[in-house]
Each structure stands twice: as C-alpha cells, then as structure tokens.
C-alpha cells in the first residue's frame, strides 16, 4: 500500500452545488453567455417579485441576490477562470472538446485566415499576421542589404506536390547531348 498511488474506497463525485448547476449551464460556457443567462434570470425574478403572493414573499429577492453573487464570481472571464481554478471538478468532470477542436469556432477559424493567405500568396504580401514580411520591415529592406542577400537566394526546383519528381528538362537536354556525342 505504501508508496503506491492512493486508491481510496470513495470515488470523486460531481458536486451539483455549484454555480453552473444552479444556472443550468455548462461549465465550459463563456463568461459572456453566463452573464446573459444571469441577466435573463434576474429579470424573471424581478417580474415574479411584482406578482408574488405572501407565501412566496422574499423568494424572488433571495434568488435575485444569489444570482448577483454568482455574477460576481463568474460574470467575467477572469473571475470565471479563478472560480474554475479553485473548483476544478466542474470543468474537469464535463465531457468536452480538446484544444485541437477549438478550430471549429468561427472566431478561431478567422484568426487563421491571414496566416493561410501569407502561406499561399507568399510572405511578401502585407497582411495582418505576424508571418507577413512587410510588418517585419516597415521601412523595407535597405538596398545595400538587399544586394548582399540576393547572393544567398536558393533557386531550387521547388515542387509543392506530394510526389518526389526529380526528372527535369535538364536531364532531357543532357541525354540529347550524350546521344549527339555518340
């Protein structure tokens, strides 16, 4: 038993007394979504307060207060992150998509557009991406340096296809030359 990973009889259990369960929202929802749900529920509570009967007296106020408390704890991304850090099981015990799947969101997808264009159209294009060369040289590369660098340009026969084609027209010329020679 000693020095081994502890394996108690009691297993982890999902604690439903958390803010997300109270709101009926996924712990993975954004603070913005949560805020809008809270606001909606607060408005409903306000509405109920107007028409409450005596036996329900105070219920709407209590609910409103609780919602306000939740808003204070998870109403912004920073606060939500802090709450999730202290109470990690809400997030960890939710079946979720991984970081690899974040591209499914439109906002993540569009962050990727400019770098795609930079790859397809070339780094020399001015695009709002850190891989765009004009951003790195706002005043351009000075002529003397350009002149110097031009010696180091490699003009290889680039082939973007998946195959490994090495035969070129030069080979054909070489063959023709050899045949003529013979």
């Amino acid at each position: 038993m000693e020095n081994n990973r502890p394996k108690p009889k009691a297993l982890i259990q999902y604690d439903e007394s958390n803010y997300y369960s109270f709101l009926g929202v996924s712990p993975l929802a954004s603070a913005k979504e949560i805020k809008s749900i809270i606001t909606k529920k607060q408005n409903e509570a306000k509405g109920r307060k107007r028409y409450q009967i005596s036996s329900q007296f105070g219920e709407a106020e209590t609910e409103f207060g609780k919602l306000q408390k939740i808003l204070e704890h998870i109403g912004t991304e920073d606060k939500k992150q802090n709450y999730d850090r202290i109470n990690p099981h809400n997030e960890l015990l939710t079946v979720q998509l991984g970081e690899n799947e974040s591209w499914m969101e439109g906002m993540v997808q569009i962050n990727f557009v400019s770098s795609l264009l930079s790859e397809v159209l070339g780094k020399d294009q001015f695009l709002p991406t850190p891989s765009s060369l004009p951003l790195w040289v706002p005043k351009g590369i000075d002529a003397e340096l350009q002149n110097f660098l031009s010696q180091f340009i490699e003009y290889n026969n680039e082939n973007t296809d998946e195959s490994d084609v090495k035969l070129s027209i030069d080979d054909l010329d070489e063959l023709a030359k050899n045949q003529d020679h013979h």
Binding site: K123, D124, L133, F148, S150, F152, I153, E154
Partner: peptide
C-alpha cells in the same frame, strides 16, 4: 521586394559573421 523565403539566412549570417564583403564595421 526580394524573395525573402528563398534566402539561405544561415549562410548569409555566416558570411557576415566572418567579416563578409563589407569594409566598414558599423555597416557590417
């Protein structure tokens, strides 16, 4: 603009590090 993606930067840096073709050290 120069075809920057095709530049062999390592070679260029190597040449400059070894003194290159530039005479003035400030420019180098």
């Amino acid at each position: 603009m120069i075809q920057s993606e095709k530049i062999d930067w390592a070679k260029a840096i190597d040449r400059l590090e070894s003194g290159g073709t530039h005479k003035e050290s400030a420019s180098l």
